[in-house]
Simulated assay, not measured.
Amino acid sequence: MERIRHKMVNVNGISMHVAEKGEGPVILFLHGFPELWYTWRHQIIALSSLGYHAVAPDLRGYGDTEAPTAISSYSCMQIVGDLVALIDSLGVEQVFLVAHDWGAIIGWYLCLFRPDRVKAFVCLSVPFMPRKPQMKPVESMRLFFGDDYYICRFQEPGKIEAEIARYGASNVLKKIISSRKPGPPCMPKDNAFGIKPDTPITLPSWFSEEDLSYYANKFNKKGFTGALNYYRAFDLNWEQTAPWTNTQVKVPVKFIVGDLDSVYTTPGMKEYVNGGDFKRDAPMLEEVVIMEGVGHFINQERADEINSHIHDFIKNF
């Protein structure tokens, strides 16, 4: 870990923290919620040793990267703007893209808006979700999954932040990372994260107390508002992407998901991924990998296998 380099880069009007290692073709790694560049620690070490320049930023609102206050600062246009500026700062025309969770959502937007900047995309956990013009996404989620659906619960500024403060960042992070409950995540009003003070939370074998401490220290310093604002910009993204309705993603893609992932086990998702609609929306989708017995945080839980999957795909380009 000490061999990973760290720097600050000015991109799109903000200061962004970037972790990097190695020389060669650039692999850009995008983390999700509630994570940091650090989620890619295993991939950075492994892929840099294979002749690649591994680059993993803290996305805006996270870690040591600037966190603007306005929800509108977290739209897909702003985040993709950060990434294009970051790619420019690296002095390359194209990157290999590897992304997970919210990073994957932003990765799909990058591929949609600027396919010229992406050689190939290894997407973890979240498939492309085409814009549905009939209804705004948060309204649609509320209709399908109810008010307690986690994205609906994240909408009101300050409310979920107060619940996180009640239990402490470390306990909340531990609960999220250790959860393996399939299906759409719901958060009851009385105890959003299901934390019981008299019931200890056991970390999974692939995530140490040292890892948890790194995450918790950064979130205690930064807070969660920037990270939660990505969810609060869902409807804004829907509004801004109206010109791209029914547009296909024309980038070579490999999609990998765990069969226990809460995204994959959400009603309708398996049918979308495996039934042909995903391939229709992303016609250059070359491979779908369903990993058995694996939860959401796939790049950490099965680091060696994910490293191999990434390299096996990108070496073809």
Rank of each mutant, 00 (worst) to 15 (best):
D101P: 11
L285F: 06
Q43I: 01
C123R: 14
G158H: 05
R180Y: 14
P267M: 07
K250I: 07
L110W: 00
F234T: 08
Y272A: 02
I79C: 13
F29L: 12
L86I: 07
Y230L: 02
G22M: 01
S89R: 10
Y52M: 04
C123Q: 13
S208H: 05
V92S: 01
D259I: 04
A227L: 02
K189E: 06
Y52W: 03
H6S: 14
F255K: 03
P157E: 10
F113V: 15
C186I: 06
N237A: 08
F313N: 15
V18I: 08
L90D: 09
R117K: 14
S178C: 09
P137H: 07
P115D: 06
V122F: 08
H42S: 11
F219C: 03
K250M: 03
M129Q: 09
E287D: 14
R280E: 11
P182H: 04
K21W: 00
F313Q: 14
G63H: 02
K7Q: 14
S170A: 13
Y52L: 05
M187T: 13
G81Q: 06
K270F: 00
G63M: 02
R166P: 09
M141S: 05
R302P: 13
E93F: 01
F96D: 15
Q134C: 04
Y215V: 01
F96P: 13
F317G: 15
V84R: 10
K250T: 04
S125L: 03
N10Q: 11
I79A: 11
P200D: 05
G168K: 05
T265Y: 03
L228K: 10
A54V: 04
R60L: 00
P157I: 00
W37G: 06
L86E: 10
A192L: 02
E239L: 13
A46L: 09
I306G: 15
M141A: 08
L260W: 05
F224N: 10
E271N: 02
F224G: 12
V92P: 01
V138P: 00
V18P: 13
V11N: 14
S48F: 03
F313K: 14
N237D: 15
T241M: 01
S170P: 02
P252Q: 05
L236V: 04
R180F: 13
E209A: 15
V122E: 05
V95G: 09
W206S: 09
Y38L: 08
V273D: 02
R5Y: 12
A303T: 10
L86W: 06
P185K: 07
V98T: 02
N217P: 07
D147Q: 04
P204V: 02
S308L: 14
V288M: 06
V294D: 08
A169V: 10
I27H: 01
R166F: 00
L59M: 07
S262W: 07
N10D: 15
V11M: 09
K175R: 15
H53G: 10
D116R: 11
A85M: 02
F113W: 08
Q94K: 12
E287T: 12
G293E: 12
K270D: 03
K159M: 00
K181L: 09
L228R: 07
Q155T: 00
G81C: 05
H17N: 03
E23K: 00
E210Y: 04
I177G: 15
R41F: 07
I106P: 12
F96A: 07
K270G: 06
Q248F: 00
G61W: 00
I105N: 05
T65R: 03
